[in-house]
Amino acid sequence: MSNIMLVSVRERPGRSAAQGAGCQAADILAQFLIEAVLLTTIGGLIGILLGVGGALAIEALTEVPASITWWSIVLAFGVSAAVGVFFGVAPARRAGRLDPVIALRAE
């Protein structure tokens, strides 16, 4: 996740500024944080669905009982969103400080 965000830091700020979007550092920060949280939230939901489905499948196919609590689902979702924010802040701050000319030259 973090590597994907770091790679896209080099592309987007330069392109946005070059196209006349006039992106401010705060706009770029918001854009990267929204993307990071969205990606990790979707990944978290998929993980929760796979985890619950796997537990129910194991319970149906074996004699092992499955116990799925509401707090474990909330905790998994919260950790997923927190990872998105944590690993989205550094690339977002870096993108906000990046000079558009340098970003375009790197392409």
Results as ranks from 00 to 15, higher is better:
residue 102 I to D: 14
residue 63 E to F: 07
residue 99 D to F: 09
residue 9 V to H: 09
residue 13 P to Y: 05
residue 74 V to T: 00
residue 90 A to V: 08
residue 91 P to Q: 08
residue 17 A to G: 06
residue 46 I to T: 15
residue 81 A to E: 07
residue 51 G to E: 07
residue 59 E to Y: 05
residue 10 R to G: 07
residue 10 R to V: 08
residue 77 F to A: 09
residue 59 E to M: 03
residue 41 T to W: 13
residue 48 I to P: 01
residue 27 D to T: 06
residue 19 Q to A: 13
residue 18 A to K: 05
residue 28 I to E: 08
residue 55 A to N: 01
residue 58 I to A: 06
residue 99 D to E: 15
residue 1 M to T: 07
residue 35 E to R: 15
residue 68 I to M: 05
residue 50 L to A: 14
residue 55 A to F: 03
residue 46 I to F: 10
residue 58 I to G: 01
residue 9 V to I: 09
residue 58 I to E: 08
residue 91 P to C: 00
residue 79 V to F: 12
residue 101 V to P: 04
residue 82 A to K: 10
residue 20 G to E: 02
residue 71 W to D: 01
residue 9 V to L: 04
residue 14 G to L: 10
residue 98 L to W: 06
residue 41 T to L: 08
residue 8 S to F: 12
residue 98 L to T: 11
residue 106 A to K: 13
residue 39 L to P: 04
residue 67 S to F: 11
residue 51 G to V: 02
residue 43 G to I: 01
residue 8 S to H: 11
residue 1 M to P: 06
residue 33 L to Q: 04
residue 102 I to N: 12
residue 34 I to F: 04
residue 73 I to S: 05
residue 78 G to I: 11
residue 58 I to P: 00
residue 3 N to L: 09
residue 43 G to C: 08
residue 23 C to P: 12
residue 94 R to C: 12
residue 67 S to Y: 14
residue 15 R to Y: 15
residue 7 V to C: 06
residue 25 A to T: 07
residue 4 I to Q: 13
residue 18 A to V: 06
residue 19 Q to H: 10
residue 52 V to G: 04
residue 53 G to E: 01
residue 37 V to H: 11
residue 93 R to P: 05
residue 19 Q to W: 09
residue 21 A to L: 11
residue 12 R to L: 15
residue 27 D to F: 13
residue 39 L to G: 14
residue 66 A to W: 01
residue 65 P to C: 10
residue 45 L to K: 00
residue 28 I to W: 02
residue 83 V to I: 13
residue 39 L to T: 03
residue 36 A to I: 05
residue 33 L to H: 05
residue 102 I to S: 13
residue 19 Q to I: 11
residue 89 V to E: 02
residue 48 I to M: 09
residue 86 F to Y: 13
residue 58 I to V: 13
residue 105 R to S: 15
residue 102 I to Q: 15
residue 97 R to G: 15
residue 74 V to C: 01
residue 88 G to S: 07
residue 75 L to M: 06
residue 73 I to Y: 00
residue 101 V to G: 06
residue 63 E to A: 03
residue 71 W to H: 01
residue 12 R to G: 10
residue 9 V to D: 01
residue 100 P to N: 11
residue 25 A to P: 07
residue 54 G to F: 07
residue 15 R to H: 10
residue 74 V to F: 04
residue 3 N to S: 06
residue 60 A to K: 01
residue 62 T to C: 01
residue 45 L to S: 05
residue 37 V to K: 03
residue 35 E to F: 15
residue 33 L to S: 04
residue 7 V to A: 15
residue 55 A to L: 11
residue 82 A to M: 10
residue 20 G to R: 14
residue 33 L to C: 09
residue 22 G to P: 13
residue 85 V to H: 02
residue 8 S to K: 05
residue 86 F to V: 12
residue 90 A to R: 02
residue 105 R to T: 05
residue 65 P to N: 03
residue 46 I to P: 03
